Amino acid sequence: MSSASFPYRILVVEDDPALREVARHMLESKGYEVLGAEDGFQGLAALKRSLPDVIISDLRMPNMNGFEFLSVVRRRFPSIPVIVISGEFTGLTVPESVLADAFFPKGQYKPQDLFAKIEDFLCELPTRPKVGKPQKAAVWVKNSNEAVVVTCTDCLRTFPVTSPPKGVNEVECDFCSCTIRFEIVGALLSPLDTSRIS
């Protein structure tokens, strides 16, 4: 698993401080170095400082949720294995909408199963294939001003885009000038028309 001189590093992204602390103690007891983050933004900041060997993430979090965070992770760091632990879904298979390599329903799994999955991923690390990257990996959310907030998959900073049309859009990042592609799959509600759902 890990040696005393070079422990494997695991990033835990969880907004509940108590659960984050429990995860830290459990993983440290197995010899792992543990980094913590309370949401996706902090998780991305942690990735910029030091890449982990495995990521464990929740899905429902404030600021940047797990779906958004994992979209960026899959695009920027496709070779890092990701485990999702969440109450959003049930069962042990990875839900189709979750960009992860393994899934555990929160409160319904045994720690030894989690440790075994981590071990499996660590054994694969030298030969782990790069999983496919999404073609449109930028993240967007509608805010109260009818704008879309896009997260640049290159510099990981966010910027607003006003009234993008439905379909695939390309914009230049306000910070690093990279071209970002994202897709609007539903119509944005206009102030005059509240009968449509985005």
Rank of each mutant, 00 (worst) to 15 (best):
V171Y: 14
F77H: 15
K166H: 10
P111I: 11
A46N: 03
R75C: 11
R76D: 09
E146V: 03
S198H: 12
D101E: 05
S97D: 15
L125P: 04
C173H: 03
G36F: 00
V148A: 14
S2R: 09
V149N: 12
I80T: 06
F41Q: 09
L188M: 15
F69Y: 14
E124S: 08
N145D: 14
I184N: 11
S198T: 12
R75H: 15
L122V: 04
K106E: 15
F41L: 11
E14F: 01
C176A: 12
A137R: 08
F89Y: 15
F41K: 09
F89I: 06
K106G: 09
F89L: 07
Q108L: 12
G66N: 04
G31T: 01
E146A: 10
R196H: 07
L70W: 08
A100L: 07
D16Y: 02
T127S: 13
V171C: 13
D193M: 08
E183W: 05
E68D: 15
G36H: 00
E96W: 04
E14K: 02
E183H: 07
R9G: 06
P191F: 10
L114R: 01
G186S: 12
F159C: 05
C155M: 05
V161D: 13
E28S: 10
C178T: 15
C123P: 00
F69P: 03
K117P: 01
A23P: 00
T179E: 10
P165S: 09
N145K: 15
E119P: 01
V34C: 06
K136V: 14
E124Q: 14
S163E: 13
